[in-house]
Design a protein around this nucleic acid. Structure first.
Lengths: 362, 362
DNA sequence: GCGGGCCTCACAAACGATTGCAACCAGCAT
DNA sequence: ATGCTGGTTGCAATCGTTTGTGAGGCCCGC
């Protein structure tokens, strides 16, 4: 690690000794201040048991707690209740701008519910993912929001077997044994195709994401269906699968598409990163966009509106997805065996029409 | 550093069924299986106390623990030791692409050390920040990595007073009572000015970030110094302070700069978002970039290389900053009163020359 | 042969909250 | 007046781990 230490200074001495600060006010202190027994104070402070104490006592305890700045000790409570009030969110890569909005949404509702969100980055590796989840499980994590699902994912099946509270977000698995929150991808693709058809495009190609993710499969299937619905022509090489959801992956697929005597007038990309690859290859090949080729992405990453031309793309309600995933997880955590469960929720998407789509050239 | 195995998992099954988890094997079980007292088992399992028991016993206990799939209860341990092995990272907005790389870097070293990282988003509000930190502190969080520091920040002073382990990253405070990890911003600005000078620019304006952050102040000061060092002209309105580190903030500052009879040939922006605002205002005013105006940003956000023209900007070593912050925090957590401390570490930056800078027009 | 000093290990007291149980009190019906 | 009921509150056990203290065995030197 390169770092030039320009100057080193000792921090100033602080006056308050560590021990004094460490000594936090505990339930006993509150109880003493309110003139009641700790047990009573506990009941007064916890909503579910609050009605077991008189309104008067409850108010007195609450006031004492407030005045003393009482904060319950999470470890002690967790020890007694076997609950950690921690949930973990598992993402393949925090650096991918797709995930932060979901994280943010989830964190909002979780922290409001008294839970703490821990974030783990699996670096896109199944092994890391397994290790992290086992670690967090050992820590007593109450539940998981998983954004790393693969289409065939043994780890998630194990979690379902083990009855570990978990919800999937953005990516689903084939087994569908865990609740799933996602965008309505079929509609998203349909909107994209509709828009192109309205612009008089008829030969439309699709650059799919990897087929080991639900998004890759679902969007590709939706594309096929939309093409059929519109009675558009199908042709050899119309759909190509990219190696990864990356610019590079999109670039090689776009390259083969362009060089293989294509005669399509529009391309839909499996996501925005793939679309970036397409744009660079189009530029290399001297094909103007949207003049000679229209392009639609998926996800509406931040800043794709700042490209020239700005990217037309499908927007997912990412914060809502995160929020809903958190809600579902919370009900999952509190679930009794009798609880009815929602298996899947698809949230509405939106086509953001910008500069990469234009009328088909005849 | 974590000495215990928090993460022992059953050898055969990868994930323990929920029912089994509920009645998890505890230290008592291990002790009974090994024919020793729980206290002894505890000592045998924890490296720091391992040498208080005979090698033979230690081996027997370890084997029993392995066989039974013993996983220590984090809550119980935390209750007794007042350590949670959790550290929190506080960011103003996860959605801002500046932070995820730091988070990622920090998480790498923390998880390697047996710590769990929890992320909190303060939504850029001081009140939220305080609430979150107090909450997490109550949870027993061992330390904080704070990326939300303001130039005057009473909360951070209180934390320093309270001797709560914490390190600042990216933004510093005036009091400098906590260790700080950042980029070498002065050099960054100097590199930017050098580059413009080499392109024969002499009248260079600076659009500063808000002066209630260290980055806003530091970069502005560095700009003044660089201008002086090169003997460049100073003039009225050369430096303008933006309302916020946002595109909108940059736009209004750029607008007043442009309309106020400027005659500079280059602009340095306090960060990339401000630079975006400048670009849009330049376009509006019909001033070509880099033809008639050169522009340099700061931070090298992802995708600024995809703009047309791609943005010349200063790159901070964000993952390294996160990693180093985590390291420093860990030593801070384990610090005894006698430990010598590094107060500040500035990491090397880099000027990424792209398309928004060109030779000055005479 | 005995006392003193290891090396091991067992015992039990914490840590701070929750919760089943029992006691208490007031009010009311008998 | 007595007994019962229902609403409040106190008591004490409990969660699973760590750790200070002391007991017992062993070896060694005198």
């Amino acid at each position: 690690m390169l770092h030039n230490r320009l100057w080193c200074v000792r921090p100033k001495q602080s006056l308050v000794p560590y021990a004094d600060v460490m000594q936090r006010v505990k339930l006993t202190d509150v109880a003493r201040a309110a003139g009641v027994h700790p047990g009573t104070a506990s009941r007064a402070l916890n909503p579910p048991t609050r009605d077991q104490v008189s309104r008067e006592t409850s108010r007195r305890v609450a006031r004492a707690a407030e005045r003393l700045g009482y904060v319950p000790n999470a470890a002690a409570r967790g020890l007694r209740t076997a609950r950690s009030y921690i949930v973990a969110m598992v993402v393949p890569d925090v650096t991918n701008p797709l995930f932060p909005p979901m994280v943010r949404g989830a964190e909002q509702v979780l922290s409001k519910a008294g839970y703490t969100l821990v974030l783990t980055d699996t670096d896109n590796e199944a092994a890391t993912e397994r290790r992290q989840i086992e670690l967090l499980r050992a820590r007593g994590t109450d539940g998981f929001i998983v954004a790393t699902a693969r289409w065939k994912d043994p780890l998630l099946d194990e979690m379902a077997d083990a009855r570990i509270p978990a919800v999937l977000v953005n990516r689903n698995t084939s087994s569908a044994r865990l609740p799933y929150i996602g965008g309505d991808e079929r509609t998203g693709i349909a909107l994209a195709v509709d828009h192109l058809v309205r612009l008089r495009h008829r030969r439309i190609s699709y650059l799919a994401g990897p087929q080991d993710t639900s998004t890759g499969r679902e969007r590709a299937a939706a594309f096929h269906q939309a093409i059929r619905n519109h009675g558009l022509p199908t042709y050899r090489g119309q759909v190509r699968v990219c190696r990864a959801y990356t610019e590079a992956g999109g670039a090689v697929a776009a390259h083969t598409l362009i060089t293989s005597g294509h005669d399509c007038t529009a391309i839909i990309a499996g996501n925005d990163l793939i679309a970036f690859g397409v744009l660079s290859e189009l530029a290399k090949a001297g094909i103007s966009c949207p003049g000679h080729m229209s392009l639609i992405g998926f996800n509406d990453l931040p800043m794709v509106d700042k490209l020239t031309p700005p990217l037309t793309t499908v927007r997912l309600p990412l914060p809502d997805m995160g929020r809903l995933a958190a809600h579902v997880l919370l009900t999952e955590i509190d679930a009794t065996a009798a609880t009815e469960r929602v298996a899947q929720s698809l949230l509405g998407v939106e086509l953001v029409i910008r500069g990469t789509t234009g009328p088909a050239v005849p």
